[in-house]
Measured scan of single mutants.
Amino acid sequence: MPVRRGHVAPQNTFLDTIIRKFEGQSRKFIIANARVENCAVIYCNDGFCELCGYSRAEVMQRPCTCDFLHGPRTQRRAAAQIAQALLGAEERKVEIAFYRKDGSCFLCLVDVVPVKNEDGAVIMFILNFEVVMEKDMVGSPAHDTNHRGPPTSWLAPGRAKTFRLKLPALLALTARESSVRSGGAGGAGAPGAVVVDVDLTPAAPSSESLALDEVTAMDNHVAGLGPAEERRALVGPGSPPRSAPGQLPSPRAHSLNPDASGSSCSLARTRSRESCASVRRASSADDIEAMRAGVLPPPPRHASTGAMHPLRSGLLNSTSDSDLVRYRTISKIPQITLNFVDLKGDPFLASPTSDREIIAPKIKERTHNVTEKVTQVLSLGADVLPEYKLQAPRIHRWTILHYSPFKAVWDWLILLLVIYTAVFTPYSAAFLLKETEEGPPATECGYACQPLAVVDLIVDIMFIVDILINFRTTYVNANEEVVSHPGRIAVHYFKGWFLIDMVAAIPFDLLI
């Protein structure tokens, strides 16, 4: 008679799926529990143990900040960024110097990925580790590398530091407007667009060049630039800015003055950032001319202004700041037409079709709590990747769950009947059967004279019903998954307890 339990259901295979997918890609990662103190490590794979030199037993239950890997060259700011990422709910990448158990130093890129439950609360953290440099290539500990984003994938490793954006290309926007319009339909740009040429040739750093990471940081200074100062900065030398009595002219307006920039070969870094931020506020060169004239017309309804409409929906549905990093990277690809469009465009503009998908598509409701890094690593669709929660398995109709209350009560009843059979069957065979043979035949009273025979008949009927119930009862397979398919249940029961239950259900007393 089957006594099969499996009270692990309803099970959740999400954690096993993450481990299996990460292991298949030869990654070095740990999984931490966000619900406990210090976000203790609950799993670390073999790749991480080989990377740091510690065994799994030495890593388990330690804080996922990996303070046991810190050393003299470990930056405090990087460690603080990892700790801050564990307090938030967004994906974050941090470069930090770690030390192995043998004392060797290596520069590592740590990717902190939160995993949320159905309520939107962070319950786990996945920390992925990628070695960037070994100890002989690690720089000085005073050099802070965590304020910069990861290198873009479309640049060669040897040319990542030679990417320079020439400031004269930004200063000569109005001069290039006529050349853009003359391109017409034969050019790649839309009317009114501004073409910015980027020099990728390796050259020595000069005062006129600005690194790509500095251009990325310009967006942080746009908020500090007032509207009046932006307007004066875009007017140009024809209309000098008016300053109040006793007030000095704005240095932001002076930063885009061609006369002032041409007199000296070098520009201050602050002026460069502010000038680029001011130019980015204009949607095209037409807006710059309109600002000089004193009238700013409404933005025209053409394809170039609607190019950012799908980007707005993608940004609203993005799951991490990696989408913004990807957008900034692609927006700086050289030799393309940049349409400086305000994100607050007309909502009635139709979304044009684009061959290049900048932001990841909208994630469906079932995966809105899973970050983009987890979705990318697992390579699963929205119909396959579940949320991290207890999910009731989908069972067929008329199927009994093996952990249901009805099955528990039924098993206790069958257990009592088995005990009765084990006690009274030998007793009936030894004593009652002998008395029946010696006594007179009682054929007239039937079952009324033999109450134990009636009980034995009921017990046999219950055993037959138990066999039928076992054909529709779920079970737990070797992978700790609840199986509810009727065919698989029948095959599993035939290979197991079916023969024993059938022999126990045969009414031998009635056959004798």
Rank of each mutant, 00 (worst) to 15 (best):
81 Q>C: 06
7 H>A: 08
62 R>I: 01
273 R>D: 14
71 G>H: 01
138 V>R: 14
282 A>C: 08
237 P>K: 14
109 L>T: 08
150 P>Y: 07
385 L>R: 14
277 A>S: 14
168 P>A: 07
34 A>P: 15
266 S>R: 07
367 T>M: 14
152 T>W: 15
55 S>K: 13
199 D>V: 01
27 R>W: 10
30 I>S: 01
31 I>K: 01
247 Q>P: 15
16 D>C: 06
303 A>Q: 11
299 P>A: 04
241 P>D: 11
29 F>W: 01
152 T>A: 05
127 L>I: 07
327 Y>K: 07
141 P>K: 15
122 V>K: 15
359 I>A: 14
209 S>R: 04
186 G>N: 07
54 Y>D: 01
177 E>P: 14
298 P>N: 01
307 A>K: 06
291 M>K: 08
108 C>M: 01
236 G>L: 07
250 S>M: 15
190 A>N: 05
203 A>Y: 05
149 G>K: 12
20 R>I: 01
353 T>F: 08
22 F>E: 13
333 I>P: 15
88 G>C: 11
65 T>S: 07
283 S>R: 05
125 F>Y: 15
111 D>F: 05
162 T>A: 06
353 T>Q: 13
243 S>M: 15
179 S>I: 12
27 R>S: 11
199 D>E: 08
363 I>D: 09
378 L>W: 07
86 L>Q: 01
66 C>V: 14
65 T>W: 09
182 S>R: 14
73 R>P: 01
216 T>L: 09
106 F>S: 01
221 H>V: 10
270 T>S: 11
345 G>K: 14
77 R>N: 10
4 R>M: 15
85 A>R: 01
184 G>H: 05
218 M>N: 06
186 G>T: 07
299 P>Q: 14
248 L>N: 12
177 E>M: 06
273 R>W: 13
193 A>L: 01
282 A>I: 11
102 D>Q: 05
9 A>Y: 15
181 R>A: 14
157 P>A: 13
308 M>D: 05
37 E>Q: 07
273 R>S: 12
168 P>C: 04
69 L>N: 01
30 I>Y: 01
305 T>N: 05
25 Q>K: 10
377 V>N: 07
210 L>T: 12
69 L>M: 13
5 R>V: 09
296 L>Y: 05
183 G>M: 07
226 G>N: 15
291 M>C: 04
108 C>S: 08
295 V>M: 08
148 R>D: 07
287 D>M: 07
126 I>G: 07
62 R>K: 10
294 G>E: 12
198 V>R: 02
181 R>D: 09
140 S>N: 11
190 A>W: 13
36 V>A: 14
162 T>K: 12
344 K>F: 06
84 Q>P: 01
93 K>T: 12
303 A>E: 11
77 R>C: 06
269 R>V: 07
108 C>G: 05
2 P>G: 07
237 P>D: 05
208 E>G: 05
364 K>I: 07
278 S>D: 05
54 Y>H: 01
188 A>N: 06
132 V>Y: 06
133 M>S: 12
43 Y>Q: 01
305 T>H: 12
171 L>P: 13
135 K>F: 06
356 R>M: 05
326 R>T: 08
168 P>F: 03
57 A>P: 09
364 K>H: 15
352 P>E: 04
313 S>V: 07
30 I>V: 13
344 K>L: 09
18 I>N: 01
74 T>P: 01
146 N>T: 12
254 H>S: 13
27 R>I: 05
87 L>K: 12
224 G>F: 15
293 A>Y: 04
52 C>Y: 05
245 P>E: 14
290 A>W: 15
115 V>R: 02
300 P>A: 11
260 A>W: 12
115 V>N: 01
68 F>D: 01
369 N>H: 03
230 E>A: 09
356 R>S: 11
79 A>F: 03
27 R>V: 07
327 Y>E: 12
251 P>I: 05
240 P>I: 08
218 M>S: 10
280 R>F: 15
36 V>F: 01
348 F>E: 07
104 S>G: 13
3 V>A: 11
40 A>N: 07
108 C>W: 01
13 T>Q: 12
144 D>C: 09
146 N>Q: 15
92 R>V: 11
179 S>M: 06
286 D>C: 14
272 S>Q: 07
221 H>L: 10
382 A>T: 01
203 A>Q: 06
173 L>G: 15
259 D>Y: 09
241 P>A: 13
332 K>A: 07
130 E>I: 05
310 P>Q: 07
375 T>H: 05
298 P>V: 08
71 G>P: 01
330 I>E: 08
247 Q>G: 12
247 Q>T: 12
324 L>C: 13
27 R>G: 13
323 D>G: 12
296 L>P: 11
260 A>V: 12
261 S>C: 07
6 G>M: 15
353 T>H: 07
63 P>L: 01
327 Y>T: 14
108 C>F: 01
184 G>I: 14
187 G>I: 13
10 P>S: 14
226 G>H: 13
96 I>R: 01
92 R>S: 13
163 F>L: 06
37 E>K: 07
140 S>G: 08
